[in-house]
């Protein structure tokens, strides 16, 4: 019956996969934001946190593997549902007025594409040190890597822009994912997104504060 491939072959199955994988990333991103905020407590706090993460060995690799698999599934499903949805309306309207769709919901695709570019560059920048906008890179001094990078205006700008995209993606996504998976409770006003607004604001503020504070010379 519709187990396995049959499940994934349907659009609802694909959306459930997107919801689950998206939520896995939401969990990671929340933890990541909280950890990064340690930069405001100085080099010691941030560097020892980073050292602790790297000391977890296998666990770190398991988490990384889960995140990579989740991202790959999320992106593949995103491309597939987008293509099917485009094909579902070969002739468009001369006029269409949105009644409920938000800026966030309408930019899931382009915003998601920007996030993919960001994730790749971000890993090459801070994790592997392959891309070095500031010229130098230290495997032990994460604090210095942050400060030297975010003093460069276009690096700070790229991060600030990408984090705005993350905020929008999750304002819609954190709300829609629980509905796609079918675990959201019945609601008198389903379009209200209070929890996801709070989550998106927290993540956006936390991730934006770091490059902005460093660029403005408030820390470092």
């Amino acid at each position: 019956m519709a187990t396995g491939r049959g499940f994934y072959r349907s659009l609802v199955g694909k959306k459930i996969v997107m919801g689950v994988t998206g939520l896995i990333w939401v969990g990671f991103v929340v933890g990541h934001a909280a950890g990064n905020l340690l930069v405001f407590r100085g080099p010691e706090a941030l560097n020892s946190y980073s050292h602790f993460l790297k000391s977890t060995g296998e666990l770190l690799w398991i988490v990384r593997a889960v995140l990579v698999v989740a991202l790959v599934l999320h992106v593949i499903a995103a491309v597939q549902v987008t293509r099917q949805s485009r094909a579902a309306r070969p002739v468009g309207y001369a006029k269409q007025e949105h009644q409920a769709a938000t800026f966030a919901s309408r930019t899931m695709r382009w915003g998601g594409a920007l996030l993919l570019v960001f994730i790749v560059l971000h890993i090459l920048h801070f994790t592997t040190g392959t891309v070095r906008p500031a010229g130098s890179f230290s495997t032990t001094d994460v604090y210095a890597n942050m400060v030297t990078s975010f003093r460069i205006w276009w690096v700070a700008f790229f991060y600030v822009t990408s984090m705005a995209a993350l905020g929008f993606h999750l304002f819609h996504g954190a709300w829609s994912s629980v509905r796609s998976i079918g675990v959201s409770p019945v609601s008198a006003d389903p379009l209200k997104k209070k929890v996801s607004l709070g989550l998106a604001l927290f993540l956006w503020l936390a991730f934006t504060a770091i490059p902005v504070a460093i660029f403005a010379g408030l820390i470092g």
Partner: peptide, 9 residues
């Protein structure tokens, strides 16, 4: 038919 994004339209 296409896929649901939960736009709410």
């Amino acid at each position: 038919f296409g896929s649901c994004t939960l736009h709410g339209e």
